[in-house]
Design a protein around this nucleic acid. Sequence first.
DNA 1: AAACAATCCAACCGCGTTGCG
DNA 2: ACGCAACGCGGTTGGATTGTT
Length: 295
Amino acid sequence: MDHHYHQHVDFGLSREDSIDSNDRKGDENNNNLDLKRGSWTVEEDFTLMNHIALHGEGRWNSLARSAGLKRTGKSCRLRWLNYLRPDVRRGNITLEEQLLILQLHSRWGNRWSKIAQHLPGRTDNEIKNYWRTRVQKQAKQLKCDVNSKEFKDTLHYLWIPRLVERIQASSNSNNQVNIQKTNENIIINNNNNNNIVPNMNFTQENYSSTTTTSSENSTGTQISDMSDNCYTNYPLNQGDYGEILISPTGGYFQQGDIFDDNNHHQNMSQLFLDDNVCDNLWNIDDMLFLQQQLN
DNA sequence: AAACAATCCAACCGCGTTGCG
DNA sequence: ACGCAACGCGGTTGGATTGTT
């Protein structure tokens, strides 16, 4: 059984026992004392899925009532969108998805829903959790603020290039992914029909993302609105990311450069020899790779 | 083996936005 | 044009799990 059900407990009043004021106003028929909260049970999931299969989704407050669920509409909506929806994908965020998240976050910031729209099957909640647990953790270990220019530079001149390297290595070994690089673009074509992995086209001017699935009804999306781009737009300049890493051109970063929490320059080679700065985002291969480059 | 700490992530909350009568 | 109900987003919480001492 899925581990999520293991943690089912009756929270009782452990969480603040209040209902969203807006929702309370709009949900006078609910008896708030009867509303359940906390983890969902198998029976509740079944009830919700069955009801949506029969009647469709939407109008969540009345749906919750007519389904006989002692939950807020909000809770039902969240459970459906983040967990029960048939096309939702959870866990095992691929390298390609990591790359896309980093790229889109640098462009849009914490616009989780907007970012999620370009990762088929991924929810904003999962991407947000990924960012907080992996990316912010990395920043913490490097002792810099996740929003600092230093960390953003680290992402774009070290982390992202390494991700691209790993995607390339993967594509060389199993021919699933084809990466084309130009002076302005990185184009990732996923040829594996068994997985839902977005095809990506990173461009300095815009992004496009299309989904390839095993079926023929692939969907396509375009990211073209740059009007709300208030974040640093890192150009994918001067060709190969690997070359940037080995001999940066046009930038002021040297191989292994990073800043400490006092904004003092220090070298990444020291940080990455420190076991404390090892993380699953930087796997063993990454560590060896970096050390090779730094020697 | 036990106690404690760190991490993960599902579920929650508040609030801004949207849609409709 | 207005008010209300519902929706959706981003931030936060806290219990379970995993790691460390």
